[in-house]
Each structure stands twice: as structure tokens, then as C-alpha cells.
Amino acid sequence: MQNQDDLAVQVARLYYYQNLTTEKIAEELGLSRPKVSRLLTHAKKNGLVEIRIHDPREPTRTLEGLLREHFQLERVHVIPTPENANEAECMRRVAMYAANHMGMLIQPGMTVGIAWGTTLNAVSQHLIPKPIPGVTLVQLNGSGTPTNFMSDHALGLLQRFGDNYQASVNPFPIPAFFDYSETKQALWRERSIRRVLDLQQQADLLLYSIGSAKASVLSYVYAANYLDPQDLKDMQQMNVVGDIATVFFREDGSFDGIPLNDRASGPDLSLFKNRKGAVCIVAGESKALALWGALRGRLMSELIVDDKTVRKVLGYGGVV
């Protein structure tokens, strides 16, 4: 007797390759039509089938084309959302798209850096199982607090990616922010820490979002009180608009001279600047200003984002 995966692949080939209807497939294989439908769903849900959509429209006339041209991005994916969709729904749709896209981005033998946060956590909830040989995952920024050395949020996110792709997982069990920059400098000389830092620098693919203190779906670093009132006041004085992997940047994309970055555990943002394989995932108009800054700083090569946020970002630049 065929197992479910084998039967699902057989049904998928008849449906997608030979264009047979579910009724014809049921008749040919001696199955019920509901059983055929369930097998097709099983094939998509478990990564046995990957669906790609190629938009035939002229790229320069689309939001994707405008973003790509204006900010010299390699790839842009703009996710359509209903006119009345709130930011939580935009997040859900972007996360589902990004989770499906991961199966094409992550290739055998890759080292993948992942920054924890609200958006990547949402993506991890929608991943489609796909064992990929030789994949190494590395956490890009620490997540500890004074009361919890390793955040369950960050560890759970990383483990879901690891389980999904059967990858080796390298956590970064250090504070998200050190109390003293001298402590960070000393720890960065330790061999065990250097091993993780080297993996981050060697990563073939970087997956991250953008945090913002003004986000409607609050970024985890702000929601979980990683920052005290003085930190927030200092950021405002420095004209900070967002962060990547808990390292902060201004509206013009610059990140030098921000004192909090000296205590942050995330990588210097030059790691993301003009780098192939730097994939940013953003949802929600309230993050538009932060995304605008990151785009101006060339802090990504590929962007997955909802259409409402794109229109607002392009409005900042007078593009639309």
C-alpha cells in the first residue's frame, strides 16, 4: 500500500502536470473526490508541491518595479492586501508568503543568519516542512534580559526553523543589550563567541525584519521591555527610526555614533549593507518610516512587504 506522501505526489502530478480534474483523478486511482482534494492539500502543506506565480506585467509599472529601481534592490515581493485590512492581517499575509518563499531561498549547504523578532516569529509559524541537507542556522543577535538569559521567544523561533529544514542550530545565548560596552568587547574575544560571530559573517542568507517603536504590531524588543525609558529618550535625541537585529539606525540609514549600538549584541549594520542574500521582511504602514530609512541605507538586497507599506514608503520619496 502506498504511503500518504507517495499517493499525494502521484495525485499532484496528475493534477498539475496532466491537467486532470479531481473527478478524473479519483476515477483513475479508485479514490473518492474528497480524498483527492485532501491529498492535494497535503502535498501543498508539506512542501511536496511548490507554486510559483510569474506576473507578466511590465515591472517598471508595478510597485515592485518602482522599489527595485529607486533603491537598487535585486528582488522585491509586494504582497496585496484587502483595502480594509489592519496591520495584524497584513502581517499574517506577508508572513505566509515569506514562509513559502523560504523553501526556494534556502539551499543545501547554506549558512542562514536569523534575527529574532515579531515578524520572523510569525514567519516561523507558517513554514512548510522541507528537509534540506547541510543547512546551518545561526542566531544574529542575543536575546537575554537581566532576568532571563535566553529568551524562549528567540529560542523557539530558531528551533522551528531548525526542525522545519532539519538544520543544525546555533543559538547566541547572550544579552540583547549589555550594561557596559566594555563587557561586550571582552566577551567578543572569547573563542566560543567568536565561532558564532564568524558564522554570522559567513552567512549565505540573512533573514530579518525591521523594528520600530511606533509599530502598531509592536516589535518584540519594545513589547518585552528590553529598553528602559532612558534608552528610548536617547534614541529619540539621536533621531533613531528603527532597528535591525537590535542595532539602531536613523532616517537617512546611518547607524554610526548611536551609543546604544555599542552595547547591542546584534551585528554592525554593515553586514547587511549592499549584501547579496540580505532578505528583509516587513509588514505594516506604521513601520514605513523605519523601512524608508533602511532602504536609504541600502540595508537589504531583497524585500518582502505589503502593498500599503510600499505606497507610504514611496510617498516619502515623492515616487508616487
Rank of each mutant, 00 (worst) to 15 (best):
D243V: 04
R75D: 00
A95Y: 08
E182T: 09
M104H: 15
N274V: 13
A283G: 06
D198T: 11
S168W: 10
I304S: 05
I132F: 09
W116F: 14
S32N: 15
G277L: 13
V240P: 07
R57V: 04
A85F: 02
S181A: 14
M235F: 12
F255G: 00
S219C: 08
R61I: 01
E87W: 09
T118F: 00
G242V: 05
E27H: 14
V169Q: 01
Y15M: 03
Q72K: 12
P146D: 02
I304W: 06
Q18Y: 01
V310R: 03
D268P: 04
K184A: 02
I210G: 02
L187F: 12
A186L: 09
T147C: 11
N141K: 15
L207N: 10
I258G: 06
D243H: 12
F177T: 03
R194P: 04
A98N: 05
G211P: 00
E64G: 11
H126K: 14
L158N: 00
P259Q: 05
L67W: 03
I106H: 07
N46S: 02
Y316W: 05
M1V: 10
M300F: 04
V313W: 03
E190L: 15
V78M: 02
A12K: 04
V76T: 11
R298M: 12
L127N: 07
A122D: 05
F149L: 09
F248V: 04
